[in-house]
Amino acid sequence: MTRIENTFKRLQAEGKRAFVAYVMAGDPDYDTSLELVRGMPAAGVDVIELGLPFTDPMADGPAIQLAASRALDAGMTLRRTLDLARAFRQGDDTTPIVLMGYYNPIYSMGVETFLREAKSAGIDGLIVVDLPPEEDDELCLPARDAGLDFIRLATPTTDDRRLPKVLENSSGFLYYVSITGITGAAAASAADVAPEVARIKRSTDLPVCVGFGIRTAQSAREIAGVADGAVVGSAIVAELAAGKSVAEVLDFVRGLAEGAHTA
């Protein structure tokens, strides 16, 4: 059983929803990023999404685009991102890490090399937003064979005809994008999300976590209340970009986690 599966089973037994937090690897620099990631489990984060910096993050809004630029300017690469995960694992062998990003850096490294290095670094799952299910032979199936979960995105436009294809080789959890558009573009609405999550859960036993548009503890509580978990990224990245210290960002994360956990 993977760390991701163990985490969701534990939370289910405790009657809690999951809190998933995204941070861009290397933003604003390697050391600060590692300090932030290391502090996340104690702040209540159940699953860490580690963003892979890329020059053309097409699904992301300004906050994460700028975070990627800062990380790249600071010398962050795919290999250094895996080094960061490896450093985190020296002190935490429990909290799942999901690497989230785009296929180009992985393709450039080579799929076989990447999967070997990712597994060695302690990565548990992948979210690769620009690889559709029709390309599962490219990375999804090799990742599954290597013991990594491949987490797929579903959106408000994923209708009942498309959903089975999205779910076909997904594992770990399903990430439901609460809005149409880029990250950080609009606020998520629990009233809109609830029927969509219920529809998806009729077709899968995977946990369904909801992200995009969650910025406050109250919003995290409301969204987690209609799903298996809430995902927050842009709001956390924005705190860091505003010049907040790691301790201040972790206080903000703690509030979001408490919101999700009390749903």
Rank of each mutant, 00 (worst) to 15 (best):
L167M: 03
S245F: 07
F173R: 00
Y22N: 01
R10W: 14
E258A: 15
A87L: 01
G26Y: 11
D130R: 04
A242W: 04
I123G: 05
A235E: 07
P207S: 13
E248P: 11
E35P: 05
E222C: 10
D228Q: 06
A241F: 01
A67L: 04
L84K: 00
G26N: 07
G61M: 08
N6D: 14
D92H: 08
V37C: 01
S219A: 15
A21Y: 04
A227N: 03
M1F: 15
F88D: 05
P53E: 05
I200A: 06
V232E: 08
V20C: 14
S33F: 10
G255P: 11
L256Q: 13
D124K: 11
L256D: 03
I200T: 12
V193Q: 11
G259C: 12
A74P: 02
A21L: 11
P28N: 11
A247D: 12
R38T: 13
R116F: 05
I123N: 11
R254I: 06
D124L: 09
P156M: 13
S171Q: 11
E222S: 10
H261R: 11
L66N: 13
V166E: 01
A59P: 10
R161D: 15
A67P: 07
I179M: 11
S120P: 00
L78E: 02
V231F: 00
L131T: 12
T113I: 15
Y175G: 00
A42K: 14
C209V: 09
G225W: 07
D149V: 08
D130S: 04
G147A: 06
K16L: 15
A220R: 06
Y22D: 04
S245E: 07
A194V: 04
A71R: 03
L99H: 06
G172L: 02
G233C: 07
S189T: 07
L34I: 00
D56V: 10
A186L: 15
I182A: 15
E239W: 10
A188L: 04
P195N: 09
V210D: 00
V23S: 12
L52N: 01
L148S: 03
A185T: 12
G255M: 15
G101N: 09
F212G: 00
P53A: 07
T113R: 15
A188G: 07
D159C: 15
V23P: 03
A263G: 14
V208E: 00
R3F: 05
Q65Y: 06
I4Y: 03
V128Y: 04
A18Q: 08
F150Q: 09
E168A: 06
R221V: 07
F212I: 02
G259V: 14
V246W: 01
S245W: 12
V177D: 00
L99E: 07
E49I: 02
T155G: 12
P41S: 02
G101K: 06
